[in-house]
């Protein structure tokens, strides 16, 4: 059994809950092959150096594990066939580079979007308000538009006339 780590990029549209399911399913696939989990580190959403599958951003996850090297091919095949994983890289590591003192997966995912459950409803309310306000303002503009425009035109013309007079 040797130490390996695999870094994979998850589709950015996945929310924290679904992301956790995906991470757990990948972990399960490793356990079914006889591997052991050492550490999971969620790097978070980062900009990709080049677009992959037309995605400019991706969620980076670092997964360190202990496994029989022969089984890594099957593990990589699982990542390859997973449509939510944009890219992956499995490398061999030394045991002294294994990350320790990492917070739990829930807190790592929770830290990415703090107060997600609290802020969401507020945002929706604000969006509704803004949309209503926009509609109202648009109506006002559409109703008042011809009159206002006409007034402005008259004012501008008057100013122009006055300017030209002063220049003369």
């Amino acid at each position: 059994m040797l130490y390996y780590e695999s870094m994979y990029i998850v589709h950015p549209a996945l929310e924290a809950g679904r992301l956790k399911d995906l991470i757990m399913s990948i972990e399960k696939s490793l356990h079914s092959l006889g591997g052991e989990t050492c550490a999971i580190n969620v790097w978070g959403k980062k900009k990709l150096a080049y677009p992959i599958n037309k995605e400019k951003y991706g969620m980076y996850v670092l997964f360190q594990f202990k496994n029989n090297g022969v089984k890594n091919k099957e593990f990589n095949l699982g990542l390859e066939h997973n449509s939510n994983v944009l890219a992956y890289l499995t490398t061999k590591i030394e045991d002294n580079t294994i990350l320790s003192d990492l917070p739990s997966l829930d807190s790592q995912l929770g830290l990415l979007n703090p107060n997600a459950s609290e802020s969401k409803p507020n945002k929706e309310v604000v969006e509704e308000k803004t949309s209503e306000a926009k509609e109202n303002s648009e109506e006002k503009v559409s109703s008042e538009a011809p009159e206002v425009a006409a007034e402005e035109k008259n004012q501008k013309e008057a100013e122009k006339v006055s300017d030209t007079k002063e220049e003369k």
Binding site: I9, L48, A49, A87
Partner: peptide, 11 residues
């Protein structure tokens, strides 16, 4: 070259 593979650095 590894970092390029995982889109951390550009090709």
């Amino acid at each position: 070259k590894k970092a390029r593979n995982i889109a951390l650095l550009p090709y």
